Simulated assay, not measured.
Amino acid sequence: MVRVVVDVMPKAEILDPQGQAIVGALPRLGFQGISGVRQGKRFELEVADDVDDAELEKIAESLLCNTVIEDWKVTRLA
Rank of each mutant, 00 (worst) to 15 (best):
S62C: 12
M1H: 14
I22M: 12
E57K: 14
V4H: 03
I34R: 08
E57R: 10
I69G: 09
G33A: 02
I69F: 05
V4A: 03
D52L: 02
K11R: 15
V51A: 04
E57D: 11
D53F: 07
E46L: 02
S35E: 15
R42D: 03
D16S: 06
K41G: 10
I59H: 09
E57Y: 05
V23C: 09
V68A: 11
V51L: 02
A78D: 13
L63H: 04
I59C: 11
G30R: 07
G33C: 04
V5H: 05
K58G: 00
G36K: 15
F31D: 11
C65V: 04
P17I: 11
V5S: 08
W72V: 02
K58Y: 08
R42G: 01
L29H: 09
L29M: 15
V51R: 04
Q39D: 00
D71W: 06
D53N: 06
T67V: 08
K11F: 14
Q32M: 04
D50I: 00
Q32A: 13
Q32K: 13
Q39S: 03
R38S: 09
V68W: 03
G30E: 05
A25N: 06
I14L: 13
I69M: 14
G40L: 01
P17C: 10
R3I: 02
V2Q: 09
D52F: 06
K58T: 06
A48G: 09
A48M: 03
